[in-house]
């Protein structure tokens, strides 16, 4: 999907600070989600494809960074190819009253790449706290998980670790 020219003309003058992206942003996302082109002026290359000016593309990207729609821009490493073969999704059943405070504490640990609260799905799925831990080996990951368990202490009722055995698909998000 690419924003129609009329939409582009209507909206490219300025970017508002609403929390959701508009059609121009969306067109830029669709064009860049597979990566920025490896050419001297990547934003110009994107701009030409979309019929926008490079200034608008860059400003829109900056605005999306400010609003949080873009978390970061840079080289996205493939952990697996780099030797971080052990990837554990550690899950805990943490008491609801404590999960936010503990979550913020654990989210600050430097080896934690994702730390989320998600719904339980009883009785099949009792865990509400998810942490991704990467390491070069299972013992290394387990040691880090042990550290998290220690912080959670008595506020954690049960836990489990799910290792990835196969990556079946991994791309950036894809909008149509």
């Amino acid at each position: 999907m690419v924003a129609s020219i009329s939409v582009v003309e209507d909206l490219c003058g300025e970017s508002d600070d609403s929390s959701f992206v508009d059609p121009v942003d969306r067109a830029i996302i669709v064009e860049t989600q597979g990566g920025l082109p490896l050419v001297s002026k990547p934003y110009h290359a994107v701009a030409i494809k979309l019929g926008l000016s490079a200034e608008v593309v860059m400003e829109r990207i900056r605005a999306m960074q400010r609003s949080g729609a873009i978390r970061r821009i840079g080289a996205i490493p493939n952990h697996f190819a780099l030797g971080y073969k052990a990837n554990g999704m550690a899950v805990w059943d943490v008491v609801d009253e404590q999960v936010d405070a503990l979550g913020h504490q654990i989210g600050r640990l430097d080896f934690v790449s994702h730390c989320y609260r998600r719904p339980r799905y009883l009785p099949e799925w009792p865990y509400n706290f998810f942490v991704m831990v990467h390491g070069q080996s299972h013992p290394e990951v387990e040691k880090k998980i042990e550290e998290i368990s220690h912080i959670l202490g008595a506020d954690c009722r049960a836990n489990d670790v799910l290792y990835s055995t196969r990556i079946l698909k991994k791309t950036g998000i894809r909008l149509k």
Binding site: I29, T32, Q33, G34, G35, L36, L38, I61, M64, A69, I70, R71, R72, I73, G74, A75, I76, P77, N78, K170, T171, G172, I173
Partner: peptide, 8 residues
């Protein structure tokens, strides 16, 4: 490297 670009 999977790509050079934005994480949305």
């Amino acid at each position: 490297v999977s790509r050079i670009g934005a994480v949305f």
